[in-house]
Amino acid sequence: MSAAVDRQRRRVLQGLCAAGAGAVFGAGASDGRAAGVFTATDVHPKDYPTVAAVRWLGETLERQTGGRLRIRMYHAGQLGRESDTLELARNGAIDFTRVYTGALNNAFPLTRALCMPFAFDSVAHQRRVHDGAVGAAVLRGFESRGVIGLALYDSGARCFYNTRRPLHAPRDLAGLKLRVPPSDIFIALIRLLGGNPTPLPYGQVFSALETHLIDGAENNLRSFHASRHFETARYWSQSAHSYAPDALLISKRTFDGLKPSDRALLTDAARASVRVMREAWDTSEAESRRALEAAGVAMNTVDAAAFRRAAEPLVRELLADPQLRALHAAIRKAA
């Protein structure tokens, strides 16, 4: 991040923090958080499906309330990393944040059920689970720590990409330094597969690849393309080792400050935004695949059975938790 961008981010954050919890709905707010204006943030660029879905959510609220409620979106990490924005939301300094669940595993243990390796067989399987009892249970689990879970945005299959070679079996990961989110699950998984896990914020991956701090990472195809990581990492291996989703969260302080009718409007619109996000995702993922193929990225399949076997010790360890075991059983039943 450049010094100028960092200074701008600091100015925005200072204004938002000065507003305090609930000021977004107060009369005559004069510090940049106007009455009825929600603040939302995402680390992804403005055309990313999750950003588009939250923008649609804001437009829907504005239309339904005659302009009384609306959303101001700060995309592309303008307000910081996901860990930063989560804390800002918990403290009421911002209202909405979209966070990858892999980065939430330690603070919100139920999200581990959605991030376990090879829990899901496909996007269709994942969407059935998100729309059912398991998804509802995970969303309820956020409330205990200062945020409300509004929606789960699926984000495709997470796979490996790197600067060195195609990965066909776990042995091919040997010696590779691979970026992972700050999650015990992903750190343990990479170790089991033979790689060297390197936790880094998403926004630092591009420079880390260029400077050879890391050899690769794991993420979905759309992010691989949108982040331009493919310009350095020329090998994509379709491991589909995780379908960990994103979560759309709102500050509990903000949510509790709404009158009941507005809470209902917001909740319904957030649920409806899932369809918008999925449609945008499916379209953009196909476009990303075509663009990556045209750019000459080497794309290969893997020995899926070998990857599953290597991950089994981690799965067994996670299933020792009764709550995770029950959620995992429901996930597999929906396969």
Score class of each variant (00 low, 15 high):
residue 4 A to K: 13
residue 8 Q to S: 10
residue 8 Q to A: 15
residue 9 R to I: 04
residue 10 R to T: 09
residue 13 L to M: 10
residue 14 Q to R: 14
residue 17 C to W: 01
residue 18 A to K: 14
residue 20 G to H: 03
residue 21 A to F: 00
residue 22 G to F: 03
residue 22 G to M: 10
residue 29 A to H: 02
residue 30 S to P: 00
residue 33 R to W: 09
residue 35 A to S: 15
residue 38 F to K: 07
residue 43 V to K: 02
residue 45 P to W: 02
residue 46 K to L: 05
residue 46 K to A: 12
residue 47 D to E: 11
residue 48 Y to K: 01
residue 48 Y to H: 15
residue 48 Y to R: 01
residue 49 P to N: 02
residue 52 A to R: 11
residue 53 A to W: 04
residue 67 G to S: 11
residue 67 G to W: 07
residue 67 G to R: 07
residue 68 R to M: 07
residue 69 L to M: 09
residue 71 I to D: 03
residue 72 R to Y: 02
residue 76 A to T: 07
residue 78 Q to T: 06
residue 81 R to W: 12
residue 83 S to Y: 12
residue 85 T to M: 08
residue 89 A to T: 02
residue 93 A to D: 07
residue 93 A to V: 04
residue 96 F to V: 08
residue 101 T to Y: 03
residue 106 N to L: 09
residue 107 A to T: 07
residue 110 L to F: 12
residue 110 L to E: 13
residue 111 T to L: 04
residue 115 C to F: 09
residue 117 P to W: 14
residue 118 F to D: 04
residue 119 A to C: 05
residue 121 D to H: 03
residue 122 S to G: 09
residue 123 V to H: 08
residue 124 A to H: 07
residue 127 R to I: 14
residue 129 V to D: 10
residue 129 V to G: 01
residue 134 V to M: 09
residue 140 R to Q: 15
residue 144 S to R: 15
residue 146 G to L: 12
residue 147 V to P: 06
residue 147 V to M: 06
residue 148 I to L: 13
residue 151 A to T: 11
residue 153 Y to W: 11
residue 154 D to H: 11
residue 155 S to C: 13
residue 158 R to W: 10
residue 158 R to Q: 09
residue 159 C to P: 09
residue 160 F to R: 06
residue 161 Y to E: 05
residue 161 Y to G: 02
residue 162 N to H: 11
residue 163 T to Y: 02
residue 165 R to E: 02
residue 166 P to R: 12
residue 167 L to M: 09
residue 171 R to S: 13
residue 177 K to Y: 01
residue 190 I to P: 02
residue 192 L to M: 13
residue 198 T to L: 07
residue 199 P to I: 12
residue 199 P to F: 04
residue 199 P to D: 10
residue 199 P to V: 06
residue 202 Y to M: 04
residue 208 A to K: 02
residue 220 N to E: 15
residue 223 S to I: 14
residue 224 F to R: 01
residue 227 S to Y: 06
residue 231 E to A: 08
residue 235 Y to R: 03
residue 237 S to D: 14
residue 238 Q to K: 07
residue 241 H to E: 05
residue 242 S to V: 09
residue 242 S to L: 10
residue 245 P to A: 08
residue 247 A to E: 00
residue 249 L to Y: 05
residue 251 S to H: 07
residue 252 K to P: 06
residue 255 F to V: 05
residue 258 L to I: 01
residue 258 L to A: 01
residue 263 R to P: 05
residue 263 R to M: 14
residue 268 D to Y: 01
residue 269 A to S: 08
residue 270 A to W: 00
residue 274 V to S: 00
residue 282 D to F: 05
residue 290 R to M: 04
residue 293 E to M: 08
residue 293 E to Y: 01
residue 294 A to D: 13
residue 295 A to M: 11
residue 300 N to P: 00
residue 302 V to M: 00
residue 303 D to R: 03
residue 304 A to W: 07
residue 304 A to H: 14
residue 307 F to C: 12
residue 310 A to T: 03
residue 314 L to G: 03
residue 315 V to R: 15
residue 315 V to Y: 08
residue 316 R to A: 11
residue 325 R to M: 04
residue 329 A to S: 09
residue 335 A to D: 15
